[in-house]
Simulated assay, not measured.
Amino acid sequence: MNTPRNLGGFALALALLAAGAAQAQSGSGYFRYGDARLALKHAIAVAEDPSDPADEPRTLVFLSAQPLDAAAVAAAFDALDAVREQAPAGGYVRVCIAADGSECGLFYSPEGFNSGGYGELALQRDEPAHVAGRWQLAQGEFLGTPYDFDLRFDTAITPAPGDALPAGGGAPGAAYNAWLAALAKGDVAALRRMGGDDARGRFPEDDPGTVKESLKSLRDGEPLQAQIARGRQHGDQAVLWVEGVDRDDIRRRGRVLMRRSQAGWQHVESDLDSVEE
């Protein structure tokens, strides 16, 4: 029986869409380090938000032997952690592409190998929503271990999800500064309430020694009060870009992860660096 013309056209359109989707997230090539060789079959790319507002955004391309969930990686506070959870055994390669199209290093797992400035990166597409290119090195050596690679990728760039928070970070920003105030005062009861499940282990009611160590550990590197430059919320998770001076008069700047529970917004993690005045 002949296929009706309109159904045939519809089937062709579906086939073209499927081919386009496959092309929009493709990766190939390999990475060899010593006797270890990782064959690459898939690629995703995510837009990285810089921790310092003065830094330009970068694109992170991840190539792996098995498919990766680009949306989950883009939504994660730490993209590398999200990729490790998805590809714990197979390994992966992360390619960093700067805003000007140059390479800003690569990382190879499971060997934990960093490299940059070697080989040749050629981009065929370098757009806000798509990146395609090839980075290859015929022969390299690190501390006596030979390595070489041929990395090919053609993939859409997945942005971080969420909506911008109002000035000051809204409710998550207020909760972070309240947590900092409790930390500075040593208000353990408030820290238990605002720190989520992790706080129960940090501040046990029957172990004052652990409480003292936890206070010292958490105070190191956290500002006494934070100025919040901007924030982004995605569901019950919010990322804040903060800056402030810690108890040692060192200026800190970076990102903070907040999560909303039935008890309200709670501090989860900070990624802050010291900056010069």
Rank of each mutant, 00 (worst) to 15 (best):
G168A: 01
A167L: 10
E205H: 06
G169R: 05
R193S: 15
F153C: 02
V242Q: 00
D154G: 08
T155A: 03
M194T: 07
L191A: 01
A181E: 04
I157Q: 04
P166S: 09
K216D: 15
V188P: 06
V239W: 14
D220T: 10
D198W: 13
A184V: 13
D198A: 15
D148V: 00
G196Q: 08
R192T: 09
Y176A: 02
A171K: 10
A160Q: 11
S217N: 03
A171Y: 06
W179R: 07
L180G: 07
D187L: 06
K212N: 13
L224D: 08
R230W: 14
S217V: 00
V242A: 06
R202S: 07
I157E: 01
E213Q: 11
K185H: 05
L165W: 03
I228L: 08
A189C: 02
F203Q: 03
Q227P: 08
F203V: 01
L240M: 04
A189E: 11
F153D: 04
I228E: 05
S214R: 10
L165M: 00
R232N: 06
Q237L: 06
G235I: 04
E213M: 10
T210H: 11
L165P: 01
E205L: 14
G168H: 06
F149C: 06
A238R: 11
R232M: 07
W179H: 13
Q237C: 01
G201P: 00
K216M: 10
V239N: 00
A171G: 00
E205M: 09
Q227M: 12
K185E: 10
R200V: 10
G186E: 04
D187Y: 08
A167M: 09
P223Y: 13
